[in-house]
Design a binder for these strands. Structure first.
Lengths: 139, 139
DNA sequence: TATATTAGTTAGCCTAGCTAACTATACGCT
DNA sequence: AGCGTATAGTTAGCTAGGCTAACTAATATA
């Protein structure tokens, strides 16, 4: 097996256990990891239109609609008018802002434990590798 | 955002685009990436019981049952008697062996292109990081 | 020998996506 | 100004790829 195959093998193998454990931590906020991904995007980069969100997350518009609907229900985000009558901007509510911070604090120790024994430099290299692949395959 | 959060962010972001593209390549064999993962396991490590497969892939037994059923239908694997009357071993058929090699050859250029601009050393570090996380979170 | 454990299956559920087809608004061209 | 095209978001309905709970059959153990 080539090292490339080995890498992607390992990449895929980790996915479910990782997501499942994140979901356990998110449970008390009634969130799943996909919804959390959107909250984090809004926190990091401010309000976005549905189309922007779809592009950033590499998912389709109807998937965004559903994510947003759920987060609106929970009171974590709200939609406001955009540049014209078609557009809607999605943004965190005050409560959403708080929750995001709280969750980030909760996830931090889990992430650190998951990366126990891995140096900062290795984490940075691995992050860069993932970012490169992302760029290569979405070209 | 901490570098740990950044890493897992990037990790998750890559998943769907990657799986989708692998699935496109697998389409002509009527396979999806989860089924491919099992074929690769059988190729790499020989025949396994259902329970072994569940443990290796970090999924539950009923999920294994479905994967195997599909691959049996396609004629890529077969089940044979195990050590006692409860156990069943899953192994590749002759056709399965051929198909796996063919698919590996098809995936190789895709993997290489996805990793374009990433050095062998970086790939190895990233693989090791993923393996470490896997070990840490499944403890 | 009765009870507990283990291997695999079945039924039915869920997340997290997808495509196709739709509505409403905006833009471009004559 | 009006018509055709493009864009933003929604709805309906589908799928992969898991999951749990509850089951059967076979084996191990007290």
């Amino acid at each position: 097996m080539t090292i490339e195959q080995e890498f992607f093998n390992q990449y895929r193998l980790m996915y479910r256990p990782f997501i499942n454990q994140v979901n356990v931590l998110l449970e008390k906020y009634q969130l799943f990891s996909s919804q959390w991904a959107l909250l984090r995007l809004l926190k990091d980069k401010g309000s976005h239109t549905f189309v922007d969100i779809a592009n950033f997350m590499f998912i389709e518009k109807p998937s965004v609609t559903r994510l947003v609907q759920k987060l609106v229900e929970l009171g974590y985000v709200e939609t406001v008018a955009g540049r014209d009558k078609r557009e809607k901007l999605v943004q965190l509510t005050a409560n959403g802002e708080e929750i995001v911070q709280e969750i980030q604090a909760q996830l931090k120790p889990f992430f650190e434990q998951a990366l126990a024994g891995v140096s900062k430099q290795e984490i940075e290299i691995a992050t860069q590798v993932l970012a490169n692949i992302c760029a290569n395959i979405n070209r």
